[in-house]
Design a protein around this nucleic acid. Structure first.
Length: 835
DNA sequence: CCTGTTAATTTTTTT
DNA sequence: AATTAACAGG
């Protein structure tokens, strides 16, 4: 404690010195421009506080200012503050805003998602739960694999019991803190429940054996830990004297319990939320948590923020009109003093591509328009389903509008990336069976289901790790056929392990070695000729991007270690406990980030139009918002249309979407669209009809009525082509330089440096140390190659280059060899030279 | 026993 | 459209 106090003193001095005229002025600054309710919330210090914050009511401002107030005015120790958000994006946002207010003091606060924060705790006390400190985390894809495996073992028919459904039930159980035993008890004679209980039980068993937890376990196990270990609970109760929870309406039961346990002593709990914005019931969120807060804490203070500062009146009234159709809500009415502003524009296109084109043109019109120029970064396109982003992408490309897609198949979820990550995990943890199973025959190396099953059987019998069985494959008669290939596989992994333990190379170099030597890249290249869809370029670019990501990660990781050494008070210290500069340590941190942080961080400040689901847009705001696909069946989704409750949640989602807009809102629909592999005609969503006429103007077809008029202001007769497309720089699919996987834009004209300026460039040629183990960088710089050039390959002899396809800062070559026929190779990687 | 091809089935939202 | 299951051929 002594050391703590000294640090506190140092911070006090810093904060008073920072505000020139003493604490009074800091206080003034924090309260400036706030309305009475906001100001009251900021100054609230002790005891439970419920802030009912309508959309756009300055909620984040209140939270950040309140935290700054606690630190600067109340002299509360920053490290005793815990702020919980739902998404990493929101946490990052909050962190940076708090840092802007209080500076370095923010680094010792815990600001993060439930999952990231609990993971810190769980790692530290993993042994109390029967895990080791480095347990792994399964994402939902991994979960489904395990469930499938359970089905196989228990011979359950996945036709009768969809994996998704069982997965969902197990998740729901965990979110409600129902463990295996209780589930089994309650299942009773119910046939389905009984089966689910069997799977649940086996599933947990497998996870435990693999020393792993899934996302839901993070919550479940954390509750268990605190429940069964009073000393641990007390430690964190002591530590977190002030707790804030954002988006409280979206907490599930487990999260509710956690918050209550942690704040049980001091009751300094401040929750912020809006029942109208509860949109996560599918993952167990319970609105009742916020509605009952006053009951849970008898003497709590309630502050309502009903003044909206975000949206113009037309937008806000439209939102109010929609949400008031919900029955299960606390009645409230948001006000704004802003002017009416533009009407909401409703557009109905004939089909999805017309809709997308309308959006794209409208965006370039607004952005280029001489009268009121609008940066791309202030425009967002929102949709109910990720699947809707595809149409938009091509239309935006045609118009040359820069954009970035958030969410969707997230970077780390891409198949090729997951494959690499599985290799890395297996290298780290040789007895990780899940990764082994994923990777053993990826790329194809002649080891099929039967062999894997045999390995499983041996593993179950002898308790050896699968990899070890591969090493000794010769000893087992049932593996005789594949033994050669199995031993080769073991050698491959063992080679990687040596690279890792020597630790003389960078993380990126290790990953690059995996990408090349495993044959993953080669397989992608080879697929290029077979499959008609040419996504090999994208996939390879993703793999290259993973390398730059690793470079970035490692340098910031090393920096963080250094900074924590100097100032161990930082919250990050917990994550880095036992961490050092070694490669193993970096890899382990990297893998953790990959599972927990779906987004690749970085260029958040770029001037791109943002595309995302409404769910991920929660908490964000933009000058101009397009909500596309506002059709019955999509939004509300057809699955929600049976129950009134589900419809109400969809309506809240519509409310969230509408209230993201500051100045201008577009709502668009299409008379018919290609989705789920079929062209379907949808009606306009009933939610749109709930907006009174006075707030909305219609283009290209009325909201009401079945038929739609064609081509009003933005007809389909004027197709964008030629000049328009060329002006954008990126042209159609024929162009060899394609978009990088996630919509990052590369201009073909620009030298390769723009995208590949990464620190990675040329690291292969580092002359320092030449180890036999590492790849010999004998390839050729693709920039020096032309079609028709002759090359000499180590294995294939001489040949002629038939085709060059640029990829990231490398290129795929199609080479016709004199003796070995046509091969596809990466220019920089292949062991060959120009002749 | 493994692989590639064809047929069939399936689609929310996130940590 | 895209992923996955069943099937035939090597």
């Amino acid at each position: 404690m002594d050391m703590f106090d000294q640090l506190v003193l140092a911070e006090d001095r810093a904060s008073t010195a920072g505000s020139k005229a003493g604490p009074g002025s800091a206080a003034d600054k924090l309260l400036k421009g706030l309305n009475p309710q906001q100001s009251q919330a900021v100054q609230h210090r002790d005891g439970p506080l419920l802030i009912l914050a309508g959309a756009g009511s300055g909620k984040t401002r209140v939270i950040t200012h309140r935290i700054a107030w606690m630190v600067q005015v109340e002299n509360i120790r920053p490290s005793s503050i815990l702020a919980i958000t739902f998404t990493n994006k929101a946490a990052a946002e909050m962190k940076s805003r708090i840092e802007a207010l209080v500076g370095g003091a923010s680094s010792s606060m815990w600001i993060g998602t439930f999952h990231s924060m609990l993971l810190r705790i769980l790692r530290r006390y993993a042994d109390r739960l029967g895990f080791t400190q480095h347990f792994t985390i399964l994402d939902s894809d991994d979960q489904q694999r395990v469930i499938k495996q359970c089905f196989k073992e228990l011979s359950i028919d996945d036709k009768k019991f969809p994996v998704r459904m069982v997965h969902g039930r197990i998740g729901t159980a965990k979110n409600s803190l129902i463990g295996v035993e209780q589930y089994e008890r309650e299942a009773g004679a119910d046939f389905i429940q009984e089966k689910v209980a069997k799977v649940y039980s086996r599933y947990q068993q497998i996870l435990k054996q693999n020393n792993s937890m899934d996302f839901d376990d993070i919550l479940f196990e954390a509750v268990k830990l605190l429940d069964n270990n009073p000393d641990v609970l007390e430690q964190y109760q002591q530590r977190f004297q002030y707790i804030m929870v954002d988006e409280y309406q979206d907490t599930n039961h487990a999260q509710y319990r956690l918050v209550h346990m942690l704040s049980a002593g001091h009751k300094n709990l401040c929750v912020v939320g809006d029942d109208d914005q509860s949109i996560y019931s599918f993952r167990g969120a319970n609105i009742q948590n916020i509605l009952d807060f006053e009951k849970d804490f008898k003497n709590c203070t309630v502050i309502k923020l009903e003044q909206n500062y975000r949206s113009t009146n037309n937008v806000l009234q439209a939102a109010n009109a929609v949400i008031k159709n919900n029955r299960g809500r606390k009645s409230k009415q948001l006000r704004t003093e802003l002017p009416d502003g533009d009407l909401i524009t409703f557009y109905k296109g004939e089909n999805h591509s017309e809709e997308a084109r309308f959006v794209a043109r409208e965006i370039s019109r607004r952005a280029d328009g001489s009268d009121s120029e609008q940066p791309f970064g202030e425009i967002a396109i929102l949709y109910r389903l990720n699947a809707l982003s595809r149409n938009l992408e091509s239309a935006l490309r045609e118009q040359g509008v820069p954009y970035k897609i958030y969410g969707g198949t997230r970077f780390y979820d891409r198949k090729e990336i997951r494959d690499v990550l599985a290799y890395l995990r297996l290298i780290m943890i040789p007895d990780d069976r899940l990764s082994f199973a994923r990777v053993i025959n990826t790329p194809r190396r002649g080891i099929g289901d039967a062999t894997v099953a045999a390995i499983d059987a041996i593993a179950a019998r002898t308790g050896q790790a699968p990899l070890e069985i591969c090493r000794q494959a010769g000893q087992y008669p049932e593996l005789a056929r594949a033994s050669g290939r199995l031993m080769l596989f073991h050698e491959l992994i063992d080679g990687f392990r040596k690279l890792l333990s020597h630790g003389e190379i960078s993380l990126a170099e290790l990953i690059e070695s995996v990408e090349n030597d495993s044959g993953l890249i080669q397989e992608i290249i080879d697929q290029q000729e077979k499959s008609s869809v040419n996504d090999s370029v994208d996939r390879i670019e993703n793999l290259k991007e993973l390398l730059s990501d690793a470079v970035e990660f490692q340098s910031s990781y090393l920096e963080q270690i250094k900074s924590v050494r100097e100032n161990p008070e930082q919250a990050a210290a917990e994550d880095l406990e036992g961490a050092d500069e070694s490669l193993v340590s970096a890899l382990s941190a990297y893998l953790e980030r990959a599972t927990l942080y779906a987004e690749l961080d970085g260029d958040t400040q770029q001037d791109n139009v943002r595309l995302m689901t409404i769910h991920s847009a929660k908490g964000l705001e933009f000058d101009t918002v397009f909500v596309v696909g506002f059709e019955e069946g999509l939004f509300p989704g057809y699955r929600s249309m049976e129950s009134e409750e589900a419809i109400e949640e969809e309506r809240r989602l519509a409310y969230v979407a509408i209230t993201r807009a500051r100045k201008k809102l577009y709502i668009t629909t299409a008379g018919s669209r290609l989705i789920f592999g079929q062209t379907q005609a949808f009606r306009v969503s009933p939610f749109v009809l709930e907006i009174p006429d006075q707030y909305i103007e219609e283009i290209g077809g009325a909201r009401f009525g079945g038929s739609y008029s064609r081509g009003a202001a933005y007809g389909s007769d004027r197709k964008p082509e030629g000049a328009t497309a060329a002006a954008g720089g990126a042209t159609g699919a024929s162009e060899p330089f394609s978009m990088a996987g996630r919509g990052r834009i590369q201009f073909p004209g620009a030298p390769a440096s723009q995208a590949s300026k990464s620190p990675l460039q040329g690291f292969g040629q580092k002359p320092a140390d030449r180890r036999e183990e590492s790849r010999k960088q004998q390839g050729i710089d693709p920039a020096t190659l032309r079609r028709g050039d002759r090359v000499k390959h180590q294995k294939f002899g001489t040949g002629r280059i038939e085709q060059i396809t640029p990829v990231a800062n490398d290129a795929i070559l199609v080479v016709e060899f004199e003796k070995h026929g046509i091969k596809r190779l990466m220019a920089k990687m292949a062991p060959m030279e120009k002749i």
